[in-house]
Write a protein that binds this DNA or RNA. Structure first.
Length: 466
RNA sequence: GGCAUCGUGGCGGAGUGGUUACGCGAAGGUCUGCAAAACCUUUUACACCGGUUCAAUUCCGGUCGAUGCCUCCA
């Protein structure tokens, strides 16, 4: 398997530390609001990575964190989110808000057929581990304390910023707002923040340095190492995390352990809407729920995101989603041919195995989904024309199972049409044979009313759902 | 201001130094009882200007444009 490693900026052959097991960490959501479709695009892509790794014979330990702490103070009232404001008005706490959005997040992942990660640790449930990691850094002389927290001293970590190829001299620190002037360097970041004097936060814990809460980066290091050890095989995340979050994760992790934090770094690019980044502040933070209300299935969205490569910045639009929806229906119609095997059909077992091999090859080459789908399209077209013979049933079923394993589109999850519907089709065939086209069309219309369309082939009628 | 990335046909989206990506859509046609499907044709595809080359969308340089990051952000 080949993966593009941000660490080296090139395609590399992937080799895990253990022969058959892969330790994968992916940055999860901060649960203070609904996740938009761009967020989910990233999780769908890492789900694909896990699926392809499994298909390649690996066992995958997948850890995805839930950031349920950070900036939720007791009197949050910023941003435009009405529910959050409402929650505050109703006297809810940061804990309630985190719980609400965590549930929403997992429900959406389920609907999008993203597999359940092996572990989904909450930051609030791993405070001791985070404190321990900060203590280790303190012991090794990588920290200093100022009035609002314990900070990581980037000057003590010469490799700081290497992953993102940061040129610290040329970065414009002055553009930042709210920089604590006591920081030794603008790049230093908080490991532990103190609760401001006279304040009481919903979320705060005791620590050796005083009451407070963990910094924004330390949870990922603490929890990934807790479950996967000091060196991860793969650390994946959104491209936006590269220059700050991932750079800081590396610094604090490697400074504490002395060993490489991750062997492979994967970054997914952003989904754009109308050529611009998705941002709630711009009012384009579309959620899967918004699309459901418009009649789209979560699987339409899943297919749309799988059609583009994870490293390119894909553009979302209604038309593109509609196109994906229709493509999915066509794929479903292809899968439903398994209920309509025809004697004399021409598709043979090796037609499926050849395409399966070709698709897997593309996916193992840095998850090249566009090429994999292109390879599939040829077969779908052939199947539509030549149909599938009964003696290819096993191969066909096996192929559909393969498609569901790698793409998660649930193609083999459909059911056959009912006996009544089959009866209608038979009646229509009879009427047609007798050149009673009036009745034949009546039967066809009856089926159409049940969202079933017919097309006639030399081997008989074929139905497909709309 | 600094650092990056990218500009492909109506839309989405791959890829390549010389041959149809693929999907969705539109127009015409063949076929069909009518449809559907399929097939054929059309819808002037690779931002612009130079350069290298027998040959560039594909390499090099420049121009213009778009976007991202530098601040929590998938």
């Amino acid at each position: 398997m080949q993966l593009y490693n941000t660490k080296t900026r090139r395609l590399e052959h992937f080799t895990p530390q253990d022969e058959n097991r892969v330790g994968l960490y992916t940055c999860g959501p901060t649960v203070y609001d609904y996740q938009h479709i761009g967020n989910y695009a990233t999780y769908i892509r890492w789900d694909l990575l896990v699926r392809v790794l499994k298909e390649s014979g690996y066992t995958v330990d997948w850890v995805m964190n839930i950031t349920d702490v950070g900036h939720l103070t007791g009197d949050v009232d910023e941003g435009e989110d009405k529910l959050q404001k409402g929650a505050n008005r109703e006297g809810k706490t940061a804990w309630d808000i985190a719980e609400f959005y965590t549930k929403d997040f997992f429900r959406n992942l389920h609907d999008l057929h993203v597999q359940q990660p092996t572990h989904t640790p909450r930051a609030t449930q791993h405070i001791p581990q985070q404190i321990k990691l900060v203590q280790a850094l303190e012991k090794r002389g990588h920290t200093y304390i100022i009035d609002d927290g314990v900070y990581f001293d980037t000057a003590t970590f010469p490799a700081y910023g290497e992953l993102a190829k940061l040129k610290l001299d040329s970065l414009q620190a002055g553009a930042r707002v709210g920089v604590n002037p006591q920081k030794r360097s603008p790049w230093d970041f908080a490991l532990w923040k103190f609760t401001p004097k006279g304040q009481k936060r919903d979320m705060e814990w005791d620590s050796p340095w005083g009451k407070g809460f963990p910094g924004w980066h330390i949870e990922c290091s603490a929890m990934s190492m807790e479950y996967l050890g000091s060196t991860l095989d793969i650390h994946a995340g959104g491209i936006d995390h590269l220059p700050v979050h991932h750079v800081n994760e590396i610094a604090q992790s490697e400074a504490a352990t002395g060993v490489p934090f991750a062997n492979y770094w994967l970054h997914s690019n952003h989904i754009m809407i109308d050529g611009a980044k998705i941002a709630k502040s711009d009012g384009n933070g579309i959620t899967p729920h918004d699309l459901s209300k418009q009649g789209f299935s979560p699987l339409d969205l899943r297919l749309l995101f799988l059609q583009s490569h994870y490293r390119s910045s894909a553009n979302f639009s209604r038309d593109a989603l509609q196109a994906a929806h229709k493509r999915r229906l066509a794929l479903q119609a292809f899968a439903d041919l398994r209920f309509q095997l025809k004697e004399g059909a021409q598709l043979a077992a090796n037609d499926f195995s050849d395409v399966q091999a070709a698709m897997l090859t593309e996916l193992q080459n840095d998850l090249r989904t566009p090429e994999a789908f292109a390879a599939l399209s040829g077969l779908v077209d052939s199947a539509e024309t030549y149909l599938v013979a009964p003696d290819a049933k096993q191969a066909f079923d096996g192929f559909l199972a393969f498609l569901d394993r790698i793409f998660g589109l649930q193609l083999a999850g459909s059911t056959d049409i009912t006996a009544e519907q089959k009866e209608l089709i038979a009646k229509r065939e009879q009427a047609r044979g007798a050149k009673d086209f009036e009745h034949a069309d009546t039967y066809r219309q009856e089926l159409a009313a049940q969202n079933i369309e017919l097309r006639d082939t030399p081997l008989g009628s074929i139905w497909q759902r709309r």
